[in-house]
């Protein structure tokens, strides 16, 4: 058993760095994929919208930790040696894609039909329509929910500790394991999560009010 020291703090801060990295990766890949999910899901063609619908249903019905284990062991089964980071990043990206897709689809649906028609009458293709007229509006409409989801995403990264990836949560557990200074260690970890999340939560609330 050791005293809580500067080195422990550094370990925790490194964990924080990895938490941010995971969040960022999931945001970027999940964001791109989520856009696709939202657009495909809005398609009137059932075969086009089906895969996104399935993705969303899966993440609404299976805990993220189980999904990550499935990815981890699933890839391992094919013979590739997969790092926990990759398994986590893939899992979180899909997770983000599902929920962002659902949020953005809601926003797409909220845009009045007349908007589509006005774009149509300007002689744009449906892709141009989407890109120039509809998406920017939908993104603005969904800004509060999107920012709110980022808080969920940051929290979700903590699940990666369960497959042994050393992000903030895992770093906290490790430091706790050597110092047994549980109250202080988990207190610090909690403070760090709050430090990232609270501003985003407040921003989401602000955006919500601004819109109304």
């Amino acid at each position: 058993m050791r005293e809580f020291s500067q080195n422990h703090m550094i370990l925790i801060l490194q964990g924080l760095g990895w938490t941010m990295a995971l969040t960022l990766a999931a945001m970027i890949f999940g964001g791109i994929l989520g856009l696709l999910v939202a657009v495909l899901r809005s398609s009137p063609n059932r075969w086009v919208s089906l895969p996104s619908a399935v993705l969303i249903r899966l993440f609404q019905g299976i805990p993220l930790v189980v999904v990550i284990f499935m990815i981890y062991f699933g890839i391992a089964r094919t013979g590739y040696n997969v790092s926990p980071f990759v398994a986590c990043a893939v899992g979180l990206s899909l997770f983000a894609a599902a929920f962002l897709g659902e949020i953005w689809r809601g926003a797409l649906l909220a845009i009045p039909r007349a908007q589509w028609e006005s774009a149509d009458s300007l002689g744009m293709t449906s892709f141009q329509m989407l890109r120039i007229a509809i998406l920017p509006q939908a993104l603005r409409l969904s800004a509060p929910a999107t920012v709110g989801f980022l808080v969920q995403l940051v929290k979700a990264t903590s699940v990666c500790s369960m497959v042994g990836f050393v992000e903030l949560m895992r770093a906290g557990q490790m430091v706790n394991g050597t110092t047994f200074d549980s109250f202080r260690v988990f207190g610090i970890v909690a403070a760090l999560y709050l430090l990232i999340n609270l501003p985003m939560s407040f921003a989401a609330k602000r955006l919500e009010k601004l819109k109304l």
Partner: peptide
Amino acid sequence: NTPFLLQAFF
């Protein structure tokens, strides 16, 4: 604004 897991540990 904190993860469920952390709450459990805390």
